[in-house]
Amino acid sequence: MGEDRRVAEHPILEDLREPDTYILYDGKRIPAITGEPVAAALLAAGVRIMRHTTKTGQPRGIFCGIGRCNDCKMIVDGVPGVRTCVTPVREGMVVETQEGLGEWRDLV
């Protein structure tokens, strides 16, 4: 963690943006861009483990990147099983590593 993996320079892509907000990942503040997928903000911060499997606790991370495989599920704002690769960032979102099927949490 801690290193920035955002593309800083590119020969073709023009609209490279800077973080304009933040999310909370397992209690830590991580810079993020409003509207980008939660998974992209996490990857940018070097986080690649999204959850651990139910039976054997194996780590899982982004696999398909387009909402089809379910590997990137995390607990988002208290709701488990949220596919972070297709969930847009909102300011202050609370994102947690999911253990197994995860648990519903009351955030208030």
């Binding site: 993996r5 955002r6 593309v7 590119h10 892509l13 490279l16 943006r17 980008e36 997928p37 992209a40 990857l43 940018a44 690649r48 483990i49 999204m50 194996q58 780590p59 899982r60 991370g61 982004i62 696999f63 398909c64 990147g65 387009i66 590997d71 690769c85």
Partner: peptide
């Protein structure tokens, strides 16, 4: 093949070209 860091080429392409984030170095 289930370790974080193993992904489809499309996932990597989505991350770099759409979201401008490197999936790895």
């Amino acid at each position: 093949s289930t370790l974080p860091g193993v992904m489809t080429a499309g996932a990597a392409q989505t991350m770099i070209n759409l979201h401008h984030v490197l999936p790895g170095k």
